[in-house]
Amino acid sequence: MLELKHVKKSYDNVTILEDINLQIKDGEIVSILGPSGCGKTTLLNLVLGLTPADSGQIIFDGKDMTNVPMEERGFNIVFQDYALFPNLNVYKNITYGLKNKPEISTKEEVDEFIELLGLKEHLNKKIEQLSGGQKQRVALARTMVMKPKILLLDEPLSALDGVIKESIKQKIKEIARDFHLTTIIVTHDPEEALTLSDKVLIVNKGGISQYGAPQEIITAPQNNFLKEFILNQLEIKRNNIFALFQQDITRKVQAV
């Protein structure tokens, strides 16, 4: 279990996050959702260990991680721009970490990740020959090979379009379920957050606006921010799509 207690962070006297308290159970997918500048990426970096907290505690499985360096926490991240190494091919990217820690994954396990993420036919390709969705899957594989205790994903879907988005979503769910892996995802898209995760953490102005399962958030929004910015947006989307399908249905009915 990951636990944040009274975590606070500010830059140059500007408070980014204030008194964050949070518990994430093992194997849960949690999305951090909020408008840009709300502090959600900072929160992700705090968990990762890239940014130190000003005060408060980060506890993982009963161990205080607050002052443990990033490399020793055992968490791992896929960045929004993937940060793949262009001088190495796909396979060398995926197995990069094994050069430093060969014992971490066996050859079979690596092949399993490659199989799962459908990368078999791309292994010898250069990074720039890949599409956005393929890059995302390579980055996921590279991170999974390191067997992280927590998987952090920074805007994993924002650079992808349409169908690819849905398939990557599916892969993320599969990975979390198959490996019982705690996964924390940062996103600014309510639809993404609510359809992908077990729990959604809505952050606004440096504080937690609401934390709960998608159903709870839809049925029992706790404040105006949630209603106006999150639910409203989803309703417009729903209405547009309904209207679209409605026309289609009407036309079909008329045709008959």
């Binding site: 890239l50 990033m70 490399e71 968490f75 791992n76 991240i77 960045f79 721009d81 940060a83 190494f85 262009p86 001088n87 990069y96 970490g97 430093n100 820690k101 590279r142 991170t143 390191m146």
Partner: peptide, 25 residues
């Protein structure tokens, strides 16, 4: 900008990342 972070999560030292990733690029 995330190469060093990513590589250090993969167990690289800073020097290793410079030699293996930054310099070749």
């Amino acid at each position: 900008s995330s190469w060093e972070t990513t590589a250090s999560l993969m167990g690289d030292t800073w020097i290793k990342t410079i030699v293996r990733i930054v310099t070749p690029n």
